[in-house]
Amino acid sequence: MVRKPLPMNEMPNTVEKVTDMTETKIAARKVQVYYGDTHAIQDVDIDIQAKAVTAFIGPSGCGKSTFLRTLNRMNDTIDVCRVEGDIKIDGEDIYDPKVDPVQLRAKVGMVFQKPNPFPKSIYDNVAYGPRIHGLASKKAELDEIVASSLQKAGLWNEVKDRLDGPGTGLSGGQQQRLCIARAIAVSPEVILMDEPCSALDPIATAKVEELIDELRENYTIVIVTHSMQQAARVSQQTAFFHLGILVELGATQDIFTNPQDKRTQDYITGRFG
């Protein structure tokens, strides 16, 4: 399985093809991530479109989640992790010393693999972000943010009568939508989702996927997923990672119907992974 990383210029035009059509929200160049001595991500160059869903796929341990976490500097919380290279959001380098990761994360929200509501009420879960970022000055405003976030996350009708109830008392799928509502409540521009459906049953997964599709209108979404079907269903753009390098990036349809790289083809046809 040891293969030489494919140099970017040998990857035929996919990047241009996609970026031609829409505005680029996130542009990463020559990104390297190290975990201690391990070189976890090598030379990743990627452009992520605004107001679209980009899916990262690849076998376990390929670095897709790691790369996702560099986009809002969640890796800062891990002591041994080091990031090099250039990641720009709206043309601004997020690893610039002037950038406060706290402000960055308000702009780039995140939803995690396992639903992780805080052990607080549903209301407080959603209101937590707006409170710390000072987005509401009055109780009424906060109520409004909470209500609209829950509505957008498609959870409002299920929980409107028990906002005081604990967030941990919801079902798995509801918890994950609560976490999405929590992320939306800070008005991010980008939402990163790290395998958001891996802990959910098929029905809950369908609901979350539906929600992702709706959110695409207003947000730039990056989703890491294990399921190729899911990537095909929800994303417009797909990136295939393998052994820490970005093998192929393209419109989702192209990647699944006409992969350019042999490794991508092997993966989507189920030969490994």
Partner: peptide
């Protein structure tokens, strides 16, 4: 938390939670 029920939520188009672009990270 004080209130259990909130007033019916306004339509999503005019909510403050809609992404507002342009605040510089710097």
């Amino acid at each position: 938390m004080t209130e259990t029920t909130l007033s019916p939520a306004p339509s999503s188009a005019e909510t403050p939670a809609a992404p507002a672009k342009g605040k510089s990270l710097y």
